[in-house]
Design a protein around this nucleic acid. Sequence first.
DNA 1: CCACTTAATT
DNA 2: AATTAAGTGG
Lengths: 324, 324
Amino acid sequence: MLEARVKQAAVLKKLLDAIKELVTDGNLDCTDEGIALQAMDNSHVALVSLKLVAEQFESYRCDRNMPLGVNLTSLTKILKCAKDQDVVTLKAPDDADSLGLVFESPKEDRVGEYEMKLMDIDQEHLGIPDTQYDATITMSSSEFQRICRDLAALGESVKIEASKEGVRFSSEGEVGNGSVLLKQSAGTDRGGASSSKKSNVKRDPDQEDEEEEEDEKPEIDEEEGEDEMDEDERPKKRKANGKAKTAKKSKKEESSSDDVGVSIILEKQVSLTFSLKYLTNFAKSAPLAREVSLHMSNDVPLLVQFDFEQGTLQFFLAPKISDE
Amino acid sequence: MLEARVKQAAVLKKLLDAIKELVTDGNLDCTDEGIALQAMDNSHVALVSLKLVAEQFESYRCDRNMPLGVNLTSLTKILKCAKDQDVVTLKAPDDADSLGLVFESPKEDRVGEYEMKLMDIDQEHLGIPDTQYDATITMSSSEFQRICRDLAALGESVKIEASKEGVRFSSEGEVGNGSVLLKQSAGTDRGGASSSKKSNVKRDPDQEDEEEEEDEKPEIDEEEGEDEMDEDERPKKRKANGKAKTAKKSKKEESSSDDVGVSIILEKQVSLTFSLKYLTNFAKSAPLAREVSLHMSNDVPLLVQFDFEQGTLQFFLAPKISDE
DNA sequence: CCACTTAATT
DNA sequence: AATTAAGTGG
């Protein structure tokens, strides 16, 4: 039997928001290692792979491997019945034809019990080779989402070019063309092949001054329209706080896309073109993790990965052939 | 003739939001006791009964009983022309074929006058017996609304079971089943039959402090177009006028659904099943009152009641027969 | 963190 | 009209 407790219903909700549009049905593969879901998207173009590791549940018990065939639309509906901070317990006996969900309010004065019918889904378990990629880009997930959304307004596909200077996303369409260039924030412009998996956005550790990371500013989004005139005697706006940091929102995630920076680990330059429709979908996972990593090699499917506290969510997508 | 002044247009707006989807036309029965509206819903399944008591109007005068046949859709449209905190005066001469509405801003610098055509509606006045119910549940109206909404995602009907431990709402449907159990907050698990009607949301009238009425903040009309820059030392909008105020939220109102708790007065256990479509509709009255009371006896129509300052809004709905 | 409000969309 | 998404306020 399975009994898994999740501290925050919010995590599950975000996960489902992230994938429900891509995948409508899938097996939750429950093992003693955790819960995994792997599925091709509805049009069999992209692959979604979710892993929730046992150790990161509030409590986890799974006596026997079992695939729970769930309709994600239904699961989403049921999760809507939970408040974000409810504790969620997933329960399934060994012979289950339904999955039990219990939502307990933090104050324990309210208990919701739901039961969702399960379905039999043919397991097409796809082995995913643990590939080494020629380029790994780590960046703010919300920045990634923004870029996908922006470029999707122009064209159907995006070309992603990673060089050691930075990464360029560009798209062409009827209205016009557009491109966004992100420069790498700090050190690494080259990574050993073996280390390529490590996402590390590591700040230079030598920067011993507290001052650290003043304001890296990816700079693309920084519109300077805002302080153009008569701020001479105007004390407002944060112009004054200068370096002192004022302790303010430096942490604060400024506009939620900052503070992360861009790191590029490059074995070889890559240039690949992808459908924006899918990338936009992948980007919906942004609420799950501050960072996203894009793993690419020429002529090989892209891996878009979100690491969050409870596990990992991966998306794979084959490039378009006609790379310009 | 009728002349009735209502302090806050907001109350009327909320009332109409609450019932307009259920009832499109009805008679406002004006007497010296106040204004009442009673009507079957459009599909003749549920009964809506509204009472606004004369004493709770800012001023009230009604020389002669008269039923004013109104189209609630039209009335809603006209009320949209009032700001929430406008004072509304309803006027009708004895021979009226139209209802006059006057909206006055609190500062009396703006007056809107509207006139709505009336219609003749056959009065099917239904006597509602003042039943004693076996179970009376009082709970947060927003919690009630949330539960109805959640369960409506699963099934068409909800079974409500009240026992002295608490009240359980449960629903079954294609995706699965769900139930929400609310535990009783405090003392009462049993009440005398005669006391069951007391829903007591009563504000303490002994609250001799004049604190009342809280000025809602009109704020819409406040032109701020001109002060956008360089008067930094300007003393901060009208924050000052609230005299002692500040003391107001001593109550704290936790998060708006809390603080109310669940109370169950039980003569006998009950278990009844109702159409969620209607309950969801009833629950739209939540903005009118912090609490709602559900009055039930087996095989008898449910009474859902909202008590607010100006009166009472009641909904009646017969249970479904097949109570499992 | 929760809920209400508004806006946009189907 | 209903649903959904995003923003705002308590």
